[in-house]
Design a protein around this nucleic acid. Structure first.
Ligand SMILES: [Zn+2]
Ligand SMILES: [Zn+2]
Ligand SMILES: [Zn+2]
Ligand SMILES: [Zn+2]
Lengths: 177, 177
DNA sequence: TTCTATATGTTATAATATATCATATTTTAA
DNA sequence: TTAAAATATGATATATTATAACATATAGAA
């Protein structure tokens, strides 16, 4: 069991696995900010203090965060922040692949690997709200095959899978068992 | 090319293909209503005139329709219709598998086969807004495999693929070629 | 028939997102 | 080096999507 998990986690197609409860999340944020700086430098775009702060707030957990949740937190450092303040920053972060939008939740989640271009494939735990990010070629291939057969040209994938993660399943949260 | 399309269209995993521009859409609506009646009878739930009307309005095209678009149209027959009128009907139709919600568009689309239980997989044309509904086992299998490897228990899939359909591609709409 | 569950009416408001114009800051280039 | 242009943020207003709460009506069951 453990072995299977480990294989899956080490697979490059798993961009960001579910994180253990006790992991060093400060380090996650540090790495995300570093990756963002690097990415913006490459793109020749300016990673301003506001954008950095908003990215940090999105990374406050591995779960999806709503725009107004970001706004509320942002206001402790920027008293006059308004919805456009946040939405513009989120738009920038999306354009540069630093965050993804979870359509089914109207929320945003930090990207686990902004260096690599990819569409969005997510496993979302209904209990702990954690998100695992995938770039699964088998899923992509299955989608592309079917689309090709119908003469459909794929431009953007939204794959959002709701369910229960291993930890919550083990802990016996809610239904499920 | 035609042959490939035809195979794909006849495949049971394509619940509803893209429709030709000149097809008899009145017939689509008639069939959808008949299927809905049958389904509700099986479920022992009441397919009221309001719910029927809302379903017809969702079926006004093969594209996604917003709740407030439905509301506006509904008002020509029900002067006093309000948002809850529509949302409650949409909720009912969803619960009975008569429509699906397209999360990435905050919109709804009629289900091409309410008799069969299935999750949502959609190809959505960015030009003509038409939607093809899939129940593709290869996509489902790829998702399930990866989820299993991560110990994740899948409960609900949201697969929404944006792109350009064959017709629009042939007509040379916008970019794409 | 009375009770009970279901369905709809009605009003208000919550939650999410964008438009618009003003101001500040940075970059470009004459 | 300074004016013009592009970019970024401030500020206000409003659009869009969705739900809460309570009242009334209707349909089945007891
Ligand atoms: Zn972390
Ligand atoms: Zn990513
Ligand atoms: Zn039709
Ligand atoms: Zn369907």
């Amino acid at each position: 069991m453990e072995k299977i998990f480990q294989e899956a986690v080490n697979d490059a197609q798993v961009i960001a696995p579910f994180q253990s409860h006790g992991h060093d999340h400060g380090q996650c944020v540090v790495e995300a900010i570093a990756a963002a700086e690097s990415r913006c430098e490459k793109d020749g775009s300016s990673f301003t203090p506001l954008r950095r702060k908003v990215l940090e707030l999105v990374w406050s957990s591995h779960g999806p965060v709503g725009a107004y949740e970001v706004l509320e937190k942002l206001r402790s450092s920027r008293r006059n922040a308004a919805p456009p303040t946040v939405y513009r920053a989120l738009e920038f972060l999306m354009e540069h692949g630093l965050i993804h939008r979870i359509e089914s939740l109207n929320a945003y989640v930090g990207c686990g690997d902004p260096a690599r271009r990819h569409g969005g494939q997510f496993l979302i735990c209904r209990d702990c709200q954690s998100v695992a990010e995938l770039d699964d070629r088998a899923i992509d291939r299955a989608v592309t095959r079917r689309a090709d057969a119908l003469g459909f040209d794929v431009e953007q994938q939204t794959v959002e899978i709701i369910g229960q993660c291993a930890d919550c399943s083990a802990r016996g949260d809610n239904d499920g068992e």
